[in-house]
Simulated scan of single mutants.
Amino acid sequence: MANILLIHGAAHGAWCWRDVIPRLGDLGHTVRAIDLPSHGQDPTPYSQVTLDSYADAILDALDEPAVVVAHSMGGYPATLAAERAPDLFQRLIYLCAYVPAPGLSLAERRMQAPRQPLLPAVRMTKDRKGWSADPALAPGIFYQDCPPETVAFALERLSIQATQPTSVPVTTGENYARVPRSYIRCMNDGTIPPEFQVTMTADWPLDSVHEMQCGHSPFFADPAGLSALIDTILQN
């Protein structure tokens, strides 16, 4: 069975994996989730967060090789970490996540999508170094197919998302190229358009791409299904 490290996306924290961790554990895996800097219980001010500090946090959590599952924005720092220390990555699974493109920051990569459903919900901080999600719009964008109790749980815990990590590109080379990778597309995603998830993985081997019929938060909408799919990926 696998050692699995779970990486959250923008404005979230380790808390978003609460329903997945025990299910993956029941399947025999050893599972951990971390708070990236300024998220969850991490006290770092958002104004001090960088993409490098995100990648460092991931590497600091990898005291032995593991399967890393990265959600949404987490795809960028996870990719950077894999480039820096490929031997610590047994596999990198992108969960409806942004896959870096040469020379493009995450913000620039996002703008390649044919639609921008997240932008209406973005509320910038006064210093322009972070943003939060409008609580009136976040449920329909992040959690449209999640149970009401779960939506309330999540809205209470959303944090400010630093802008610096999304403003710089990730450069990859031979190190990243040798890391086994898989992608899980969420085909009802209200944050990252499903058609853009298809575009980002259009040249991937067919057996490395999987689909779930859910929105942007499968860890809440279908934690059992997500856990089973991760387990299946790791057995093949």
Score class of each variant (00 low, 15 high):
residue 175 N to W: 05
residue 126 K to R: 06
residue 210 H to E: 12
residue 124 M to T: 02
residue 195 E to V: 14
residue 102 P to C: 05
residue 177 A to S: 13
residue 188 N to R: 14
residue 102 P to L: 07
residue 173 G to V: 06
residue 186 C to W: 07
residue 199 T to Y: 14
residue 160 I to F: 10
residue 209 V to A: 09
residue 204 W to Y: 14
residue 132 S to V: 12
residue 175 N to C: 03
residue 203 D to L: 11
residue 185 R to A: 14
residue 146 C to K: 00
residue 143 Y to A: 04
residue 178 R to M: 07
residue 111 M to P: 00
residue 191 T to Q: 09
residue 154 A to H: 06
residue 106 L to C: 06
residue 135 P to H: 07
residue 172 T to V: 15
residue 200 M to G: 03
residue 164 Q to H: 12
residue 178 R to C: 05
residue 128 R to S: 11
residue 198 V to Y: 07
residue 165 P to L: 09
residue 211 E to A: 15
residue 198 V to M: 06
residue 97 A to R: 00
residue 192 I to K: 02
residue 96 C to V: 11
residue 170 V to S: 08
residue 202 A to M: 04
residue 132 S to E: 15
residue 185 R to F: 09
residue 192 I to E: 10
residue 128 R to A: 13
residue 183 Y to T: 05
residue 200 M to Y: 06
residue 179 V to D: 13
residue 203 D to M: 08
residue 207 D to K: 06
residue 183 Y to D: 10
residue 109 R to T: 06
residue 148 P to M: 05
residue 123 R to M: 12
residue 203 D to K: 08
residue 134 D to K: 01
residue 135 P to W: 11
residue 117 P to T: 09
residue 107 A to N: 12
residue 131 W to A: 13
residue 156 E to V: 00
residue 160 I to L: 14
residue 154 A to R: 00
residue 139 P to F: 03
residue 156 E to F: 04
residue 169 P to H: 07
residue 207 D to H: 14
residue 172 T to I: 14
residue 116 Q to K: 03
residue 159 S to L: 04
residue 188 N to A: 13
residue 203 D to H: 12
residue 211 E to K: 02
residue 126 K to I: 02
residue 147 P to I: 01
residue 157 R to G: 02
residue 176 Y to M: 11
residue 119 L to S: 11
residue 139 P to M: 08
residue 186 C to R: 01
residue 151 V to C: 08
residue 143 Y to S: 03
residue 129 K to T: 04
residue 193 P to S: 11
residue 120 P to N: 07
residue 140 G to A: 11
